[in-house]
Design a binder for these strands. Structure first.
Lengths: 264, 264
DNA sequence: TCATGTGAACAGATTCACAGCG
DNA sequence: CGCTGTGAATCTGTTCACATGA
């Protein structure tokens, strides 16, 4: 944010909505599958089904890229694959470093989807000297002392952080200082970065908690018959902690079962 | 769906916006950290900074939960931790099964964030008989033949799919048939599920592609400013696919096999 | 006085529905 | 005619700014 984003209303301007960008990889995957089966064309309806979205949304998304379809027919699969790939910047090769080669880092290193489209694991980096030289997924791990040199030499602009949360910010700082401008963060921490650096995060724990929320709601609903329970049944839970009432003497602190704390 | 009401009328209904739900785990994490440091209260400003959002958004989010703050003071940390935990359903225990114990599945099994908050790995399941009985992260792997029994016996409602893409849909179908109603999918596939089942996906490849898009845009911007590729003919890189010409031989016939369209 | 809580303005994304073109 | 492409309507989410109440 806060970039010189004043006017950009031109014709086919570069202003593709973020939500659309996030779906392009989905379309690309579906198209690639069709391409492998030598399917020549698809309709928005078919492609949308394969990508798990509705067709109006898909057409709107494509309309931001340009008019790449043929009315009455559909989209040429190969052509669309190319256009989306180009739009996403996948016609070039992106060297990526993975920092933190624990269980997760190792799994990421071996992940097939990495190599598949334009991404190449340029280096695996870990702070543990004992790891240095050990090959993981066929790639030797390098010590983090060499992080800056590696990034510089290979022209790496995308970094993946798979370290413990406690060191993620400093790893991030070093990556950024060395020239990385896009970071994929697997550590359960909020990273702060300067303007111009993009961070995306992947957090298992957050995803599970979101699922739990909906799961809980389902459980609560099944008791009501069918109408939405509106203001109904609240605080079904057990040990109820005190409200922040300061009425009377100080501490309300009934610890009870405060959830476990987070890991490093 | 099925929620007929078009109007969300009165006071404080159970309708917490999805975007808010997705941020609650973030707040909870920040609050937990404060709690560990025995910080008694936080202002929306401070907490927002710790969670990486702006304070207006945070206050609005909290307002959907109720009025848990104290004007002129801020929020009681312990109290908020409890309220958010409860809202997310983390005051109860959620048994989770992980299906597909490859590199990724194993990494997930060992992930600390799992056990920390309300989630318990009830079982690790893999289709490979050679894996059966082998302990991973201290938990013995069970064969997928027993999937239904495990889910039923332990009352599992959340499943994690970490299998190859090719079998993800059938694993999903079995999970759902056995009673799972929330799925976290790490396989790079679109899963189709019946109504009432929630799916969230985590896809490394998609995240990287989104980063690549922005990365490319940065690169294009720093050179010459205006970069309008217009018609495809830009980077001569590699095979340039043909435009959707249907010249001669017309028939791209709608015959043959229908693409991967799956049934609703 | 101070920071929360919230109506109202704004911005962004999705859906509708149909014009337009092959 | 069928399907794309797109304005307009709608819905969802964010930001503003200030009344409210401890």
């Amino acid at each position: 944010m806060a970039t010189g984003r004043t006017h950009r209303p031109a014709t086919r301007s570069r202003g593709i909505p973020e939500a659309t960008v996030a779906r392009l990889p989905l379309y690309l995957r579906a198209l690639t599958a069709l391409s492998e089966r030598s399917v020549p064309t698809v309709s928005s309806e078919e492609l949308a089904a394969a990508a798990g979205v509705n067709s109006a949304k898909l057409r709107k998304d494509f309309s931001y890229l340009g008019s790449y379809g043929t009315r009455g027919v559909g989209y040429d699969v190969e052509y669309l694959v190319y256009q989306i790939s180009r739009e996403l910047g996948l016609t070039q090769d992106w060297p990526v470093v993975i920092v933190g080669i624990g269980n997760l880092g190792a799994a990421l290193a071996g992940y097939g989807g990495f190599a598949s489209r334009g991404f190449r694991v340029a280096a695996l980096i870990d702070a543990d000297p004992a790891m240095a030289g050990k090959p993981v997924a066929g790639i030797p791990v390098q010590h983090s002392d060499d992080l800056e040199k590696i990034i510089h030499d290979d022209g790496v602009s995308i970094g993946v952080i798979a370290t413990p949360a406690g060191v993620a910010q400093q790893v991030c700082d070093r990556l950024v200082a060395a020239g990385v401008t896009s970071i994929l963060n697997f550590a359960p921490t909020v990273l702060s970065v300067p303007d111009g650096v993009d961070v995306r995060k992947v957090d298992l724990s957050i995803e599970l908690q979101i699922l739990a929320f909906h799961e809980q709601r389902k459980a609560g609903e099944e008791a009501g018959g069918e109408n939405a329970p509106e203001t109904g049944a609240e605080t079904p839970a057990a040990a109820m902690p005190p409200a922040p009432r300061s009425t009377g003497s100080g501490r309300k602190g009934p610890d009870g079962d405060v959830p476990a704390v987070m890991p490093a």
